[in-house]
Design a protein around this nucleic acid. Structure first.
Lengths: 222, 222
DNA sequence: GCAAAAGTGTTAGATATACACCCATGG
DNA sequence: CCATGGGTGTATATCTAACACTTTTGC
């Protein structure tokens, strides 16, 4: 129908939270001109019979082995002419989140081609994936401040200290414990469970869960 | 290099503010299957030697006759399979803003193929352009609340009543005059000019201008 | 009993909201 | 003098920010 202009692709930045750290799913990119174990985010071409989001979810499955239900939203379309050394490729990047304990053992484990890596200290990534990561981290900050997005990063049950730690990671600030608890509890996002942590070498902590995983504006949270 | 998958295009929603109303630049789409004066937003294919934003600016020039310097930011990539009846076209939509009095007479005037139309009451548009408009209006709301974006919609000199009216249009709320003035003045975004309106049939109004047109977070404005 | 993390309130300052009348101009 | 839109202040409620000690458990 028209002259061929650009290949259309997608990349996905999938985040999770575990052990007081933000993690992102990476793949190994060892194609020319990238060698020696360079990392990037899973992605691939968009097929004629799928929209960009469907392609993103498929790539997560095929390239990163992730099948679980997840939160996914479009981040940005990266279209710089030289962003891919192989040719003109425009990539619609997606951001996704999944609670660590929703993942199967196979999804949690690191493999040769794909692994969970801490967001801090990823180093130089392939293509323009560092730029994508910066976009994603800014986006996470904005959403963490104004929505209940963290329901897609926290495990099913968590303590307020763990939740606070997740906010602190994403917002890159230190929060006051008492003010944080007052604020988050009065927002009515959380349900108090009839359970506490056990087996720790300190005082047991009250467990909570999110009321809803529908991500909506929830006031100015933090 | 690869199988042909999708054509890559861009569309631009260019807004301005005049006579207490939000306006958007439209074009006439009378190609099959759209006839009888259907409206849409200016757009076109992305060329091999330009990124999406450059293509958007070029399309504004070629299809809508707009050459002035403007604020432009990516909105969303629309990729539904059937969004264009002519074939598989993915469109990276951009939102742009320009102050009415930056426009030349030729840019202000309506022509056969392209015109300024009030945002309210546009009716059914071609393709998925109604969806684009909804995205853009939500985006405008969010930015109006947290940045000095309106520096790209207001004329060089304006009264506080005009500025309030622009906020009210975009946010779709009615604001209290005294609270609005208190808030906006204490934010230090505006410069008081040594001028007042004249020739009106009522009391002259103080004129202001924006200190800066660099769009940045400016507190929770309104 | 000690180490480690959990849990808990108050106060002062800043911000948001609600609200009504007088002023300057043109006709 | 009247119609039109411009301009101004206060009081209350709410939210934010700063801050330190006691409790419960495992070892």
């Amino acid at each position: 129908m028209e002259l061929h202009h650009a290949i259309l692709a997608t990349d996905v930045l999938l985040f999770t939270f575990r052990a007081s750290q933000l993690w992102v799913r990476t793949i190994t990119v060892d194609r020319p001109p990238y060698f020696v174990n360079m990392k990037g985010f899973p992605g691939g071409l968009i097929k004629p019979d799928e929209n960009a989001e469907a392609a993103a979810i498929r790539c997560l499955r095929e390239k990163a082995g992730i099948l679980s239900k997840l939160f996914i939203e479009q981040l940005y379309a990266f279209s710089e002419i030289d962003r891919d050394p192989r040719g003109r490729v425009v990539s619609v990047a997606y951001l996704a989140c999944v609670p660590w304990d929703d993942l199967s053992e196979l999804e949690q484990v690191d493999q040769d081609a794909t692994a969970w890596r801490r967001v801090n200290g990823l180093g130089k990534l392939a293509y323009d994936h560092n730029e994508m990561l910066n976009f994603a981290l800014e986006w996470l900050k904005a959403k963490a401040k104004s929505t209940n997005l963290l329901s897609w990063l926290m495990p099913k049950e968590f303590t307020l200290t763990e939740l606070q730690s997740c906010y602190e990671q994403i917002l890159e600030v230190k929060l006051d414990k008492r003010n944080f608890r007052k604020k988050i509890l009065q927002l009515d996002l959380l349900k108090l469970l009839a359970k506490k942590t056990a087996g720790m070498k300190n005082r047991p902590a009250q467990l909570y869960q999110f009321n809803s995983k529908k991500v909506t504006f929830s006031g100015n949270l933090i």
